[in-house]
Design a protein around this nucleic acid. Structure first.
Lengths: 221, 221
DNA sequence: GCGCCACATATTGTCAACAATCTTCAGGGC
DNA sequence: GCCCTGAAGATTGTTGACAATATGTGGCGC
C-alpha cells in the first residue's frame, strides 16, 4: 500500500490525521460514532495533545463534529448531505472546466488524453460493468480540477470535498451503473476543454454531475 | 462592539481564534508576517497549547499557513488570490441563487425584500457615493447564501471564503465605485428568486460577481 | 573574498498532570 | 410511578516542562 503514514518527516499529529482520515472514509470508524480521546490516544501510543491536533484537522475537513466539553463525533451520512455535496460539486467542477478550457496548458491536455486512453483499455469498462478509477492522480475529476490552475478551487475540492465524496462512495457502496455513458461524457468534456470552449465544458460537466446525482437519488428510493 | 469574544461559554481557544481572526482580517496582524507562538501566548495570557488550537483553526480557514517545524505565517494577499476568490464565488453564489429560487421560502423572501428596502434608504447610496452593507445578517450576499438552504454551501461561503473576502476588502480598501449599479443588480437578482426562476437568478449573480471582479482588475492596474 | 560547516539560540512538536465541565446513576420527594 | 436533586465518575480543556528541529552566526578552509 505504501501508505503516506510511514513518511518520517511528517509530524506525529499529521500521521494520526492521515490514518484516522482513512479509517473514517472507509468506515472502519463508523459514521455517527463517538470519538474517545483517551481511547484513541492509547491505541496509537500517542499523547492526547497530538491526537487532538489530528481531530481538529478532521473537523475542519468536515469529517467529524466537535462540541465544547462534549467531544467529537464522526459525521452522519444522510441523503440530504449527499445531495448538498453534489450541488456544490456541480457548481465548482463546472467552473473548473471553464477555467481549464481557458488555461489550456499543453501539459494538462496531454495528461488528460492519456488518462482517458488508459480508462478505455479497462476490461471492466468494456464489459459495461464498472468504471473504476484509481483514486488520486488518475481520477478524471481530480485531474480536471488540477487543470483549472485555481489554487483555491483545487484546495476546496481535492482537500476538502472529495474526502466526503469518497466516504459516501465507500459506505453507501455506489458503483457507477452508468459506466459506459459516464466514460462518453468524460470524453466530450475533455474535447470541449481541448477546443478551448469553456462555456460548453462547464455545461457538460454540470450535466454530468447532475446525471450522477439523479442516478443516486433514484437508487436511494 | 459587543464582541462575541466576551461570551463566557466559549472555550479559551475559541475566543483566541475569534480575536485573532478579526486582527488578521483587519490587518492589525500584517499579511505575510510570521506568527510567534510564545509571543502571542504571552500577549493573551494563555498557554501555547490553547493558542496552537486557535492557530490550527485559522489555518483551516486559509488565513494562516503552517509548516512543520517552521511555524505559521499570515497568508499573503495577491492579485491572483483575489481573482481566484472571485472565480470560486461566481460558481458558488451562482448556485446559491439557483437553489434559493428553488426553495423560495416565504420567510427568506420577506427578509430579502426588507433588506433591499433598507439599503435603498441609505443616503450614501442615493448620493451615488458608496453602497455600505453592514457585515453579517444584513449583507446581501450573506442572506442569499443562507436562503439556498444548502448547509455545505453556506458553510463553505460564510464560514470560509467570506473572511478572506473581508480581508481583501479591509486591506486593499476597495469601496465599491459601482454603488447604484450594484444595487440595481441586487434588485434584479432578488426579483428572479421571487419569480422562482433559478436559471436567471444564477446567471444574474454570476454576471454581478464577474462585473465586481473586472472592476477590481481595472483598479489594480 | 566567497562558500561551507559547526555551534548556539530560539522555535516548534510532544508529553503527562491538573482543572473544569459534562454525563450517569442512585436516592429521595411529590 | 415519575421527576427532580446531587454526588461519583469519566471526559474534555488547559497548562507548563521536556525533546526535537530549524534558524542565524561565527569561524575556518579554499
Amino acid at each position: 500500500m505504501n501508505s503516506p503514514v510511514l513518511e518520517a518527516h511528517l509530524s506525529l499529529a499529521e500521521r494520526l490525521f492521515l490514518t484516522l482520515r482513512g479509517e473514517i472514509v472507509e468506515g472502519c470508524i463508523a459514521a455517527g460514532s463517538k470519538i474517545s480521546e483517551p481511547e484513541l490516544a492509547r491505541r496509537f501510543n500517542a499523547s492526547r495533545g497530538s491526537l487532538r491536533e489530528a481531530l481538529m484537522r478532521l473537523e475542519s475537513l468536515g469529517l467529524l463534529e466537535r462540541r465544547v466539553n462534549v467531544g467529537a463525533r464522526v459525521v452522519e451520512l444522510s441523503e440530504r448531505g449527499l445531495l448538498e455535496l453534489y450541488e456544490v460539486r456541480e457548481a465548482l467542477e463546472g467552473m473548473a472546466c471553464r477555467l481549464a478550457a481557458k488555461a489550456r496548458s499543453e501539459e494538462d491536455l496531454v495528461a488528460l488524453r492519456k488518462m482517458l486512453a488508459g480508462h478505455e483499455q479497462q476490461e471492466e469498462l468494456q464489459a459495461g460493468k464498472a468504471y473504476f478509477q484509481p483514486e488520486g492522480d488518475f481520477d478524471f475529476h481530480f485531474r480536471i480540477v488540477q487543470a483549472s490552475k485555481n489554487e483555491l478551487l483545487i484546495d476546496t475540492l481535492c482537500n476538502r470535498l472529495y474526502y466526503r465524496v469518497r466516504m459516501y462512495r465507500y459506505q453507501l457502496g455506489m458503483a457507477s451503473p452508468r459506466a459506459q455513458r459516464a466514460f462518453r461524457e468524460h470524453s466530450h468534456i475533455i474535447e470541449a476543454i481541448e477546443a478551448g470552449d469553456g462555456e460548453l465544458a462547464e455545461l457538460l460537466m454540470r450535466r454530468h454531475i447532475r446525471a450522477s446525482r439523479q442516478n443516486i437519488e433514484n437508487k436511494l428510493r
